Computed example of a mutant assay.
Amino acid sequence: MEGLGRVVANGNGGTFARNSPTQVSLLVLMLWTGGGEQPPIACAQLTGSRRVKITITQKEAAVSIQAWWRGTLVRRTLLHAALRAWIIQRWWKQKLVTLLEKRQRANLDSYVRKEWAAVRLQSWVRMWRFRLRYCRLLHAVRIIQLYWRWHICHNRGFIQGHYDVKGNQMNLELEFSLGSQACRMQQCIPLPIKE
């Protein structure tokens, strides 16, 4: 591989880099032109605005093509390995995303349950406190109503009385009090009792 080829340019002294795509395509063209030991093959190709002439033997061309082909196979193998690695990495990243989503959903569900329990507990405590306050107010209202009714009865008036049953008669005694006036009534009512 030392003397891959001699490059002659039109007085510019330009050379190709080793194993460049242009050189490989020229080598492939030279290999197809004949077989066996022959004198060096010359090929010319236009590159940009200058014409380049390359002289190389068939054995060197075959070795170059074989090296290029082996390199292509290695690159293809590496490409397949890289694609497989990329597929595995993508699958693993999707798995990680799925696991992260599950973990976040579980954390969110736990947070929602805790918040709901806290809100429910606060609601019960507030309800209990309001009920206790309501019961106290209701008791105070009943006491105020009782004293107010007693006050109204004493200021406006009241009725008081008692009765006795003797034989077939009922003695009724009522006393009415309306503010400053008082009235007493007694009455004897016969009871219709059949003997």
Rank of each mutant, 00 (worst) to 15 (best):
residue 15 T to G: 06
residue 18 R to G: 05
residue 18 R to Y: 07
residue 20 S to W: 08
residue 24 V to H: 07
residue 24 V to R: 10
residue 25 S to N: 15
residue 26 L to T: 05
residue 26 L to V: 10
residue 27 L to A: 14
residue 27 L to F: 13
residue 28 V to N: 12
residue 28 V to K: 14
residue 32 W to K: 08
residue 33 T to K: 14
residue 34 G to T: 06
residue 35 G to I: 09
residue 35 G to H: 08
residue 35 G to N: 14
residue 36 G to M: 06
residue 38 Q to V: 13
residue 38 Q to P: 00
residue 39 P to M: 10
residue 40 P to W: 02
residue 40 P to Y: 02
residue 40 P to I: 03
residue 41 I to D: 05
residue 43 C to Q: 07
residue 45 Q to A: 11
residue 45 Q to H: 10
residue 46 L to D: 03
residue 48 G to W: 05
residue 50 R to N: 03
residue 50 R to K: 12
residue 51 R to S: 10
residue 51 R to W: 01
residue 52 V to N: 01
residue 54 I to Q: 01
residue 55 T to A: 09
residue 55 T to E: 14
residue 56 I to E: 03
residue 57 T to R: 09
residue 57 T to G: 10
residue 58 Q to C: 02
residue 58 Q to S: 07
residue 58 Q to K: 12
residue 60 E to G: 01
residue 61 A to N: 01
residue 62 A to E: 11
residue 63 V to M: 02
residue 64 S to C: 12
residue 65 I to C: 15
residue 66 Q to V: 08
residue 69 W to S: 12
residue 69 W to E: 13
residue 71 G to N: 12
residue 71 G to W: 09
residue 74 V to K: 11
residue 74 V to H: 06
residue 78 L to K: 15
residue 78 L to M: 11
residue 78 L to W: 05
residue 79 L to R: 14
residue 80 H to I: 04
residue 80 H to S: 04
residue 80 H to D: 04
residue 81 A to K: 15
residue 82 A to N: 02
residue 83 L to F: 00
residue 87 I to K: 01
residue 87 I to A: 03
residue 88 I to C: 06
residue 89 Q to T: 01
residue 90 R to N: 01
residue 92 W to I: 00
residue 92 W to C: 01
residue 92 W to Q: 04
residue 93 K to S: 04
residue 94 Q to G: 04
residue 95 K to D: 03
residue 95 K to P: 00
residue 97 V to A: 13
residue 100 L to E: 08
residue 101 E to K: 12
residue 103 R to S: 11
residue 104 Q to P: 00
residue 105 R to P: 00
residue 106 A to N: 14
residue 110 S to I: 00
residue 110 S to T: 10
residue 111 Y to M: 04
residue 112 V to W: 11
residue 114 K to Q: 14
residue 114 K to S: 13
residue 116 W to I: 07
residue 121 L to I: 01
residue 123 S to Y: 12
residue 126 R to I: 02
residue 126 R to C: 05
residue 128 W to F: 05
residue 130 F to Y: 11
residue 130 F to V: 05
residue 130 F to I: 06
residue 133 R to Q: 15
residue 133 R to S: 14
residue 133 R to L: 12
residue 136 R to K: 14
residue 138 L to K: 08
residue 141 V to D: 11
residue 141 V to A: 11
residue 141 V to Y: 07
residue 142 R to G: 01
residue 143 I to E: 15
residue 147 Y to A: 04
residue 147 Y to I: 04
residue 147 Y to S: 13
residue 147 Y to L: 13
